[in-house]
């Protein structure tokens, strides 16, 4: 038997996810509508926000677009961080993990392929909101900026996926990790500049924020699409993003293999 490649698991998981989605039609429809609603709903925030402060710190008064890109990013962040461990928790609960773990592919490969498939699925819901953000930023938008923004987002989400794989591996060992996840989720949302510009945070919090893969990905996305200032020079931010991806990939691979080994000593089905 030739080896099973990640791409096949990925596209088959996309196929499986879309089939499932289309079988919950009302839910599917509401997810799309809600995404657009969030985009429009952000206009309300602009009524109470100090746009001068925003211009001083990040170089734009367009708070609505600023926060829409933050929330759009959050869609992927949720999937990247939480997708893998909720998938494994589901498989542990139903017993499917016994079957999948007797199949001949690496666990890391399986988890990453499935999270990537989830990210594709969630992009559908993220799209309406993202389009509204683009429309609100139309004065600064260029094709090149759009592509660079997407590339930085891709790197950032890929690094987040590695963090998600680590959470998934923790699920194999500790079964319930909701509290651990909530802890990290809060830190990422508050300290990555998703809703609050990094530049106004105290220095110690900024340092923590720099280690979060979302921070520079989102900063570059806003920079290329909205023309905002970047926290560091863009080239440094790219380098940090790539380094974060490489480092987290190595840690994720090691964690999966180590914790799977530990889980095998007890038996994966004990949840």
């Amino acid at each position: 038997m030739k080896g099973i490649n990640s791409l096949k698991i990925f596209y088959m998981a996309v196929w499986r996810n879309f089939l499932t989605l289309t079988r919950y039609k009302v839910n599917f429809l509401f997810s799309i509508v809600t995404s657009a609603l969030w985009g429009v709903g952000m206009l309300l925030f602009s009524l109470a926000f100090d746009s001068l402060m925003l211009e001083r710190t990040v170089g734009t008064t367009n708070y609505v677009a600023f926060i829409i890109f933050g929330i759009s990013f959050q869609c992927w962040q949720g999937t990247a961080l939480w997708g893998a461990s909720s998938m494994l928790q589901g498989e542990l609960g139903s017993g499917q993990i016994d079957y999948t773990f007797t199949c001949p592919f690496s666990r890391y490969q399986y988890i990453v392929s499935n999270v990537a498939a989830l990210a594709v699925q969630d992009s559908l819901f993220f799209l309406p909101m993202f389009c509204i953000g683009l429309w609100l930023a139309n004065t600064t938008l260029t094709i090149q900026g759009f592509l660079l923004g997407l590339a930085s987002t891709f790197l950032s989400v890929a690094a987040l996926v590695q963090l998600g794989v680590i959470f998934a591996a923790l699920t194999l060992r500790y079964r319930q990790i909701n509290a651990i996840f909530s802890f990290f989720n809060f830190i990422i949302q508050m300290l990555s500049g998703m809703f609050i510009p990094m530049q106004i945070l105290p220095i110690p919090l900024q340092i923590i924020g720099f280690s979060i893969p979302v921070t520079f990905g989102m900063d570059l996305l806003r920079h290329y699409i909205m023309g905002t200032f970047t926290i560091l020079s863009p080239i440094y931010e790219w380098v940090v993003l790539i380094a974060q991806l490489a480092l987290l990939s190595m840690i994720a691979k090691f964690t999966v293999s180590y914790l799977e080994d530990k889980a095998k000593e007890e038996g994966l089905h004990y949840i």
Binding site: I4, T20, R23, D98, Y99
Partner: peptide, 30 residues
């Protein structure tokens, strides 16, 4: 090949039998 004990919930509920088996055979077993 493996079929575990009490594993009758271990497939995708909203896919048909055919789709489930096709997914497992093609994606996970090549």
């Amino acid at each position: 090949g493996y079929a575990g004990q009490d594993s009758e919930r271990s497939a995708y509920f909203r896919l048909s039998i055919r789709e489930n088996l096709f997914y497992f055979a093609h994606a996970l077993r090549d």
